[in-house]
């Protein structure tokens, strides 16, 4: 019932300029045990998540480790097979495509990984890393190939003479630039950025973030920006979704979410970020305990074990995830009490 409602909501909202529509996405990992590897249960890494992103916008997905945000990114690109749901990119359901159709559609959706060290093949020169898929999909004619690669490299602040060098000669920040160039070379509509700056030093982070924003403006790229760093997400995103144990608990336009957080988890998350001002002593909401294991999530509202406002109903019944006005989606029983 709940699933159908969300589907309808999303479809209603869907405007012409929607690039990505994720509807009730589910990804379960089986838990196997015993000699015969019988399936004894499921880890519900992503359990019914829906959102959509408009062209040229950035959707920030935040949450703590193990909440399923990385799984969402990979499942949308079908790097792992989904358990259920739909991901519609340009009117086509990615999950319904055959292997062949999928391969053709690959250039439209790209990914940037967290670790710039393991995401570049150490035995390939930079030019080939960037251009490999360009050749594969015949994006530009053979004659223009080299110029095209150089142009992409220029856009990503890479010097032209890097083209014949190998990844081992570059620093983390430069490697991340190469990763972005590789994704960009395919002219994608959407880029999933999975913690693209978490592994980098602070001063390099700024460079990458600035570059991503410039490229977005220039090429109208849509980002799904996954991060645990709230300040970075606040800076780069237009809409932000907060995840907890495989579900979105709150989603709203950035300013709305950061100024007026509704879900107790969002509030705790926001107040947990250290403020770089020694004179401001924040009135902090400190959550007790840790995230429960996703293999054995609590009954009812998944957050009730740590929630400072836990009520009886929270232990029994999962709250509904719905719009409370101004595209501010929340899943919390407290909202109905107001």
């Amino acid at each position: 019932m709940k699933a159908n409602d969300t589907v309808l909501d999303v479809i209603d909202l869907r405007a012409k300029d929607t690039v990505l529509d994720v509807i009730d996405l589910k990804k379960y990992y089986p838990i196997k045990s015993g000699v015969v590897q019988r399936v004894v249960g499921h880890v519900k890494a992503v359990d019914g998540v829906s959102f959509s992103i408009k062209r040229g916008q950035t959707f920030g997905l935040v949450g703590e480790s193990g909440c399923g945000k990385t799984t969402i990114g990979r499942t949308i690109l079908r790097l792992t097979e989904p358990t259920g749901g739909k991901a519609i990119i340009k009117g086509r359901d990615v999950f319904a495509l055959s292997k062949r159709e999928l391969r053709k559609m690959r250039p439209e959706m790209q990914i940037i990984f967290q670790d710039p060290y393991s995401s570049l093949d150490p035995r390939m020169p930079v030019g080939e890393i960037i251009g490999e898929a360009v050749k594969e999909h015949n994006i530009v004619p053979r004659a223009e190939y080299r110029d095209y690669i150089l142009k992409v490299m220029h856009d990503c602040e890479l010097r032209p003479y890097y083209i014949d060098r190998y990844p081992h000669e570059f620093s983390g920040g430069q490697r991340q630039c190469i990763c972005i160039a590789r994704a960009l070379a395919l002219n994608p509509d959407i880029i999933v950025a999975d913690e693209p700056v978490s592994a980098l030093d602070v001063s390099i982070q700024a460079q990458i973030i600035n570059m991503m924003r410039d490229l977005q403006e220039k090429r109208q790229i849509t980002y799904l920006f996954i991060s645990h760093d709230l300040s970075v997400v606040e800076y780069i995103s237009d809409v932000v979704g907060v995840m907890y144990l495989g579900n979105l608990v709150e989603k709203a336009p950035k300013t709305e979410l950061f100024k007026n957080p509704q879900h107790p988890y969002t509030r705790a998350l926001l107040s947990a970020v250290p403020v770089p001002n020694p004179d401001v002593k924040m009135n902090r909401v400190i959550l007790q305990g840790d995230i429960p294991s996703p293999a054995n999530p609590p009954k009812g509202c998944k957050f009730h074990t740590r929630c400072p406002h836990c009520m009886d109903i929270c232990r029994e019944q999962a709250p509904e995830y719905k719009d409370y006005g101004g595209e501010h989606f929340v899943a919390c029983h407290l909202m109905d009490q107001k």
């Binding site: 790097l79 999928l102 995401s119 570049l120 390939m124 490999e132 898929a133 594969e136 999909h137």
Partner: peptide, 26 residues
């Protein structure tokens, strides 16, 4: 499981190329 193999998958690189250009040299 290396991310560059995943990136190759995400870029829609042919299986044969993935094996001979990425896996074999490594």
């Amino acid at each position: 499981e290396m991310e560059y193999m995943q990136a190759a998958e995400a870029a829609g690189i042919r299986t044969s190329r993935k094996i001979f250009r990425h896996l074999v040299p490594n």
